[in-house]
Computed example of a mutant assay.
Amino acid sequence: MFAERLAVVTDARVRRPQSIVELARSRPRGAIGDRLFLVAADHPARGALAAGSRPTAMADRGELLERLCAALARPGVHGVLGTADVLEDLLLLGALDGKVVIGSMNRGGLAGTAFEIDDRFTGYGAEAVAAMGFDGGKMLLRIDPDDLATVSTMEGCARAVDALAGRRLMAMVEPFISHRVDGRVRNELTADAMVRAISVASGLGGTSAYTWLKVPVVPDMERVMAASTLPALLLGGEVPADRDAAFEGWQKALRLPTVKGIVAGRSLLYPADDDVAGAVDTAVSLL
């Protein structure tokens, strides 16, 4: 059945490409409220296809879309974060009606490359987000004290914050302090590192009125989240070895006043037991 739906998507891309924009502008939109639960699906565009022990889990687009549709259909899921290719597939599948949609902006820092920290804006721009009737844009900001390319990424993020705010759209910033370890970029998941990253991210651009943060759960989250008054969403990260412990960490962090929800991708789309609906329902119940 899903293969037939995918065939319709490809047919529309070939015969009626204009229908993508038409669907985007005419669809019922979602609303950003006091609590927000989003599913993330922007990993493939950065060349990050692994999920848990499966190195190419996200390489099958049909399977990814089927899992996304299953997740988006669950009660309590407010929307999705993704790149244009994924979001347009979901539009053609009818999965974005009534959903909050966030476009992923900088995907140029391909995973495992020498230029990973120089994270160029190769995805959505603020103008494209607005033209599609979406609700905001998300950007990744990895701050490597030893990599000069960090400053160009910071500047790109600041410009994106301004461009989104000028259109009254959410600017979702995902900040980390990062280092190269054995040639690979690794995020420093400590309280001190996240306090510094959040402090930098909060000050990007000429206004923070529309800025939200996307942050991992790390030790001492009370001190981490005290670094800013901006609303924040918890990121899901990798597929956890201990899902119960991960959910417990989310639950504790969700009690903090600035934490307003969750953005999770691989940890829910590719759970160890492959029960997408069960993983999503459990995570939604934490809100």
Rank of each mutant, 00 (worst) to 15 (best):
A70M: 14
A71W: 02
A71M: 09
A71Q: 00
A71K: 01
L72V: 10
A73D: 15
R74D: 04
R74S: 11
P75W: 09
P75I: 05
P75M: 04
G76T: 09
G76C: 11
V77A: 11
V77Q: 08
V77E: 08
V77P: 01
H78V: 01
H78N: 15
V80F: 04
V80P: 06
V80S: 00
V80T: 01
L81V: 15
L81T: 14
G82N: 06
G82C: 08
G82V: 03
T83P: 06
T83V: 13
A84H: 07
A84K: 11
D85M: 08
D85T: 12
D85Y: 05
V86R: 04
V86E: 05
V86T: 15
L87R: 03
L87E: 04
L87C: 02
L87S: 02
L87M: 03
E88P: 00
E88H: 13
E88R: 07
E88A: 06
E88C: 11
D89N: 14
L90N: 05
L90K: 01
L90C: 04
L91Q: 13
L91D: 07
L92H: 00
L93W: 10
A95W: 11
A95N: 06
L96D: 04
L96Y: 10
L96I: 07
D97R: 02
D97Y: 10
D97G: 15
G98V: 09
G98C: 09
G98W: 14
K99H: 14
K99F: 03
V100P: 02
V100E: 09
V101T: 11
V101P: 01
V101F: 14
I102M: 12
G103I: 11
G103S: 07
S104H: 14
S104P: 00
S104V: 12
S104K: 12
M105K: 00
M105W: 02
M105Y: 04
M105F: 09
N106L: 13
R107G: 07
R107L: 15
R107C: 11
G108Y: 11
G108M: 13
G108E: 08
G108L: 09
G108S: 08
G109W: 11
G109S: 06
G109T: 04
G109C: 09
G109M: 04
L110Q: 00
L110C: 01
L110F: 13
A111M: 12
A111Y: 14
A111R: 14
G112N: 01
G112L: 07
T113L: 01
T113P: 01
T113M: 06
T113R: 04
A114F: 05
A114M: 06
A114Y: 03
F115L: 13
F115K: 06
E116A: 12
E116F: 11
E116Q: 15
E116D: 07
I117K: 00
D118N: 13
D118H: 14
D118F: 14
D118E: 15
D118Q: 10
D118S: 11
D119M: 02
D119K: 05
D119C: 10
D119T: 07
